[in-house]
Design a protein around this nucleic acid. Structure first.
Length: 838
RNA sequence: GCCCGAGUGGUGGAAUGGCAGACACGCGGGACUCAAAAUCCCGUGCCGGCAACGGCGUGUGGGUUCGACUCCCUCCUCGGGCACCA
């Protein structure tokens, strides 16, 4: 960080300077004053019912950590706030709410670490965050603040669970789950990174079998995918979701077996079925036992139990040596009619497709490795494009051919077809005989919402020996989280809530017999899957979201946030919205009309992280430079949707700009109307540029355009050289203040007031530009000879090609390169460039 | 391995296929000052030249075009996502 002299000197300026010197810009005073005025005049409070032109401006609510806001949060919020303020200046009634995502593992782990109860820690963190958020000057309507830990909120989180339960979309499954020995809880697949816990990068995740609640999001896979095409979202985010859903097309093929059930396999390459020389079942496959021959029992059992002990994740990680075991049975290849051996191997996963595959070692990397290792037959049924007419010899070519651009061989009547042609042909042929069905598969998994933890909303279910699973009646919501002093998870794998005896034991709502509460709490992502629905309706204790307000304000007009939530939060909230829509609770099925992913702020080219020790804490910068300067600096770092590199130097540039603008405002005279044409032209160009830049979230270029304009304005008015008594016309200054207001709101308000306005600058209209006035009379035309720049002409706008060429040829520098040569061609771009080809 | 995104001065970055480097930081020089800070002015891609000016220049190599940072192909590096998903 820079030495503090600058700021101190600046802020002490007013006292030190001579009596008649103008007051210096004092950000601390200006910002305190305007935050007070905004609060007093309730300027950021939206009239939700009366708004004529509603605009819902959403930003991702923070998790209130003990460390406080970091610079990444500030970057995210300021960028969204600028968008909201811009919309407001354009006449929209902007609703900009904020809240706190305060449940979850983050909070609980931190509470464990400092040995304090999260119930006491979180309110303090929230108070701290609230203050920090106020200090960065957000246009937030604090009347609608919410916290997911508030029973008035999580009552409805539980209500949503019940709606899904009633609709059959919340199901209980015994399933192998990821278990983090450090968190002592189940992790979603998304929370497992390369086999390690997201929260504990050094801790390997293992496997446990637990009864869990799942939301069957997979039933919505197709819709989640299809709707994506219609959304105005960042391309990168849509792509991440598309890949996450992972749609693939293929066919399910049936291989007859000695037992009554055939083995069904899913394949994307039915064209290679003639090359299927073996089958593989996942170790958990239900047919394994029946298909294992007597003398293979011991081997198969040993193999399966070895796999069962392995954790879910490491089984899938890396290019391990393939393992497997032969069952001793054979199945019939429906295409060739031949018998093929049935194997069991852990490279086949039960959770995807049918849990069984056909092994086509000639044309699949994994099958090839497996067949090589176990000496299984490798048969080529595709000749790669460009290869010789004969099939390549597996003994010579030591790799499979996974090419789609090949031609079938060794495939009976299908020989000669291209792979692409063969897929539908073979599928149809097998389908006729009852051996095939076209099939679409998705990679997406169901959403496990159970957490064996304390700090979350209890899942509202009661277990009764008579009635089995009984949902808590809606009238009994919320199921309050019991105030448990010792909230530590233990090795049992059971939630700490099981130890709250009084809470745990309840009469069954159905039959009144003694029953037990579900002791798991729900995933934090469920809390955040619907928070945007709650904001407009925070005042209603009796409904999750008011129908009228919801219709008026939703879906969200603009959502700006980080791409780290591209597949989890954004997918889950889309899913919940779809379900609530289908159940008749919402009139729309997509929550966010427009989503923009902002970039990441890095430090010295590296991601900020505690372990690197390069985390930038914004507080000191704001204290020293003021929030407005800091906001502008962050936005100037680079394109908002790409992020930027935070450096301590550089912030001074933004402060200099505001200082210069400040002195310009103080030197603004009465409207003399005598503005120079060049400045006026530049003003209209600037309005056009800033408007376009703001629409595209290109905040860095918007600021640059304002700087350019101010530089010209000061130069032409004599302010730059501190000419005594120099003044500048009001009409040339005021639009700039309005355009700056989204970036530096406190500063703009103060300037606006000093310019004589009684109303907030945010009541002013966004300046309009006039195309005619933005156009220059004279243009500079580049003169190229053979594409190389050889001269420039300043000429009146609108000359004909011939006139321009004549003038270009009058230029000595140009003639040097043209003289003595014939001009073969002339390319003229009106008022911009002329290229003489000689 | 597969799918995205990005490589431009000392630095952050700017440029609907049409003057590469806007804007800003930093740096050099000057003014003001007893001096410093702040402020203001001038300069600042690289090479050659006193200069006029010339040559080179947007990760690499090729291509399309009158003209390419921009479009196409190859490769390299960095960042992100997915990954035994059949």
């Amino acid at each position: 960080m820079r030495k503090p002299q600058n700021a101190q000197q600046r802020s002490q300026g007013p006292q030190l300077e001579q009596r008649n010197a103008p007051p210096a810009y004092d950000p601390a005073a200006v910002e305190v004053k305007w935050r007070r005025v905004w609060a007093e005049r309730r300027i950021n409070v939206t009239d939700l019912r009366g708004a004529a032109s509603p605009y819902y401006n959403l930003m991702m609510f923070p998790y209130p950590s003990a460390e406080g806001l970091h610079v990444g949060n500030v970057f995210a919020f300021v960028g969204a706030d600028i968008h909201g303020r811009f919309q407001r200046l354009r006449g929209r009634d902007v609703f900009e709410p904020i809240g706190f995502d305060a449940f979850g593992i983050h909070s609980e782990n931190y509470a464990l670490k400092v040995n304090q109860h999260p119930g006491r820690l979180i309110p303090a963190n929230i108070a701290n965050f609230r203050e920090q958020l106020r200090r960065i000057g957000l246009m937030v309507d604090w009347d609608h603040e919410l916290a997911t830990t508030d029973p008035a909120y999580y009552k409805w989180t539980q209500w949503i669970f019940l709606q899904l339960y009633k609709a059959g979309l919340a199901v209980r499954k015994r399933a192998p789950v990821n278990w983090c020995p450090e968190c002592k809880t189940v992790l979603a697949n998304e929370q497992v990174i390369d086999g390690f816990c997201e929260r504990h990068p050094a801790v390997r995740v293992t496997q446990r079998l637990l009864e869990q609640w799942f939301f069957t999001i997979t039933r919505y896979a197709e819709r989640l995918l299809d709707n994506l095409k219609t959304l105005d979202w960042s391309e990168s985010t849509r792509l991440l979701q598309t890949n996450w859903i992972g749609r693939s097309e293929g066919a399910e093929l049936a291989f007859a077996t000695p037992v009554s059930d055939p083995i069904r396999v899913y394949t994307t390459r039915p064209d290679t079925v003639f090359g299927a020389t073996y089958l593989v079942l996942a170790p958990e496959h239900p047919l394994v036992e029946a298909l294992t021959a007597g003398d293979r029992q011991a081997d198969v059992r040993a193999y399966r139990s070895r796999v069962a002990q392995m954790d879910v994740v490491s089984r899938k990680v890396g290019e391990r040596q393939k393992t497997g075991v032969f069952t001793g049975s054979y199945a019939r290849n429906p295409a060739t009619g031949e018998s093929v051996p049935i194997w069991v191997a852990d490279y086949v996963l039960m959770e995807y497709g049918t849990g069984a595959i056909m092994g086509v070692p000639g044309h699949d990397e994994r099958d090839y490795a497996f067949a090589k290792h176990f000496g299984l037959e490798i048969r080529w049924v595709v000749r790669p494009a460009g290869a010789a007419a004969r099939a390549p010899d597996p003994d010579v070519v030591d790799m499979p051919c996974t090419d789609w651009d090949g031609v079938l061989i060794n495939s009976g009547q299908f020989d000669g077809l291209s792979c692409r042609e063969a897929v539908p042909a073979i599928t149809a042929w097998l389908a006729e005989q009852g051996f095939a069905t076209p099939q679409v598969q998705y990679r997406l998994h169901d959403w496990c919402i159970s957490r064996q933890r304390y700090w979350g909303p209890p899942i509202p279910v009661i277990y009764c020996d008579v009635c089995d699973v009984v949902p808590v009646p809606e009238k009994d919501l919320p199921v309050l989280l019991p105030p448990l002093e010792d909230f530590r998870p233990d090795e049992s794998g059971v939630s700490p809530l099981a130890r709250a005896e009084e809470w745990y034991r309840v009469p069954c709502p159905g039959c009144g017999n003694p029953a037990r509460r579900e002791t798991d709490v729900s995933d934090t992502f469920l809390d955040s899957a619907w928070y945007f629905l709650r904001y407009p309706s925070t005042e209603f204790p009796d409904r999750p979201f008011d129908r009228g307000l919801t219709e008026k304000w939703l879906p969200v007009d603009s959502y700006i946030g980080g791409n780290e939530h591209a597949v989890l939060h954004l997918m889950y909230s889309r899913f919940i919205t779809m379900v609530l829509h289908d159940l008749g609770h919402l009139p729309f099925d997509e929550p966010y009309k427009r989503f923009r992913a902002h970039g990441t702020i890095v430090k010295d080219g590296a991601k900020m992280s505690k372990s690197r020790g390069n985390v930038v804490i914004p507080d000191a910068y704001i204290a020293k430079w003021g929030a407005d300067t800091f906001r502008m600096y962050l936005m100037f770092l680079g394109p908002y949707q790409e992020g930027g590199d935070f450096r301590d130097d550089g912030i001074l540039g933004q402060r200099r700009f505001l200082d210069k603008l400040w002195s310009t405002v103080l030197a603004t005279g009465a409207d003399d109307g005598g503005s120079e044409r060049a400045v006026e032209t530049k003003l209209h160009q600037t309005i056009r540029r800033v408007t376009a830049s703001l629409e595209e979230l290109r905040y860095n270029t918007a600021i640059a355009a304002l700087m350019e304009y101010l530089n010209l304005l000061r130069e032409t008015s004599g302010l730059g050289v501190s000419r005594p008594g120099a003044s500048v016309a009001r009409t040339l200054v005021e639009p700039m203040i309005v355009m700056l207001a989204p970036f530096a709101p406190h500063f703009a308000e103060e300037c606006w007031e000093r310019l004589g306005h009684a109303q907030s600058v945010f009541r002013a209209p966004w300046p309009a530009w006039d195309e005619a006035r933005a156009r220059e009379d004279e243009v500079e035309v580049a003169v190229q000879v053979n594409g190389k720049l050889r001269g420039r002409l300043t000429i009146p706008r609108g000359l004909s090609q011939q006139q321009v060429v004549d003038r270009a040829l009058a230029d000595a520098a140009v003639r040097r390169f043209v003289d003595g040569k014939a001009i073969r061609k002339v390319v003229y771009v009106q008022d911009k460039l002329v290229n003489l080809v000689v």
